[in-house]
């Protein structure tokens, strides 16, 4: 795949049929958006970091299934996925450690914790959700890529 705009000019030899590719093009953005919605509303409705992260990862896996792995890896390379995975974990740990400033590990340190059913409330919980979704999304995507590519280095899959 060496064409720049791979989504606009699909290579007919790679991936699935034109029907699948067209549907994927239409839906993949919505899936990504839905994932972001789930993760950002984790504190006011069911869902949260893990579920949102899984849906975000699924949108990339969706591209991979329809267009082949080259296109998907161009959108999110393995290096970037691995970077985001570590970054998510570190961010989560950092949020937990900042709790020490208030006196306790994992303390919800915002003075004003907001009120129920408001998006900008709940202190550190939305931030934690974002960190978890980074970790889960990148981690799940890289697990999938590693298992697909058959050329893997044995990697630590952490239960977080």
């Amino acid at each position: 795949m060496n064409n720049k705009k791979e989504a606009a000019v699909p290579d007919p030899n790679k991936g699935m049929t034109i029907i699948v590719k067209t549907i994927t093009r239409l839906t993949v953005g919505l899936i990504l958006l839905y994932g972001i919605y789930i993760l950002s509303h984790g504190h006011v409705s069911p869902g949260g970091g893990f579920a949102g992260g899984v849906i975000v990862a699924l949108s990339f896996i969706h591209i991979m299934l329809a267009f082949g792995k080259d296109v998907a890896l161009k959108k999110l390379s393995m290096r970037a996925a691995s970077f985001f995975e570590s970054l998510g974990a570190l961010l989560f740990l950092l949020i937990a450690v900042i709790g020490f400033t208030g006196g306790s590990f994992f303390l919800n340190f915002f003075a004003d914790k907001g009120e129920p059913f408001k998006l900008f409330s709940a202190g550190i919980i939305p931030l934690c959700n974002i960190a978890i979704s980074l970790k889960v999304g990148a981690g799940l995507f890289s697990i999938f890529v590693i298992l697909v590519m058959l050329k893997f280095t044995v990697d630590g899959k952490k239960g977080n």
């Binding site: 298992l147 058959l150 893997f152 044995v154 952490k158 239960g159």
Partner: peptide, 21 residues
């Protein structure tokens, strides 16, 4: 259970990776 499922996911991924190898 959600936490346990996440752990299960990690263990399953590990098992499948080793089985393929």
């Amino acid at each position: 259970v959600l936490t346990a499922i996440v752990i299960g996911l990690a263990v399953t991924a590990m098992m499948v990776a080793i089985a393929i190898r």
